[in-house]
Write a protein that binds this DNA or RNA. Structure first.
Lengths: 124, 124
DNA sequence: ACCTGGTTCCATGCGATGCAAGATACCTGG
DNA sequence: CCAGGTATCTTGCATCGCATGGAACCAGGT
């Protein structure tokens, strides 16, 4: 990670994350509870969604505030205890909602980027 | 799209638009200049990216402030004059950047939503 | 015992963005 | 002249990603 990477590409990627990160975090909790740093690493490995602690922890606080996740403390073999985050029913419902909405959104953006825009627009 | 639609689905879609709208608007100007209401209608027809004037006009002001578009006034056969927005070289470069970044981002989200997350944390 | 480093958690403040609501101006038709 | 549609723009609010900083716990070296 290059600090100070304020290129246009980085800026576009940063804006893209908005709103999507929340649901990718929920998706990571789909199969089993996760703790903060674990989520951070999983996002980093994905490449396009790498982010920082300053983003993940406020996000997790919002998810807990909105009752989308519940948390349980658990001891760690090496290090301080970890707070594990698990989906609630509401969280799973939100994830399902997003899973339904996402393809339409993705296809719409794909269409804007790849489809030629004919000049046969509206001629009033 | 009913106004006042504050369902979870609408909320997810609203967050998704963040950052993407800017580049979809740039993409609409790729082949020819467009004016505000025209862009608004094109976005509305796409379904997933429908938005309002209060979103589009501040966005267009930012694009002009950042020298991504230039504007020219043009008379209309019926109605007030229209301000047409056209891509600058910087605007076209930004659009190309986004076109390069988008597939990786899209595929990353697809992977989070569709891939089962094994306890090994091995993502590929 | 001390202290350095690694791990894990969290809070604060800033900048950017989407959006509702409202204001202004032009043209056509009754 | 007034009503309605078209077209532009501004203001204030809420939300979100992120940099920055701090706190707590554990292990190992001196």
């Amino acid at each position: 990670m290059e600090p100070g990477d304020s290129t246009k590409q980085a800026r576009a990627a940063a804006q893209l994350r908005k709103g999507v990160l929340e649901y990718c975090v929920l998706a990571l909790m789909r199969d089993r509870p996760r703790y903060g740093v674990e989520l951070l690493h999983a996002l980093e490995e994905s490449g396009a969604l790498a982010t920082s602690q300053g983003t993940v922890y406020p996000l997790l606080s919002r998810l807990r505030r909105d009752d989308l996740v519940t948390t349980t403390w658990q001891e760690s073999a090496s290090g301080p205890p970890r707070r594990y985050y698990a989906l609630t029913d509401s969280g799973r419902a939100a994830l399902d909602e997003f899973t339904r909405v996402w393809p339409g959104f993705r296809n719409a953006v794909d269409a804007f980027l790849t489809t030629p825009h004919p000049s046969t627009g509206d001629t009033q």
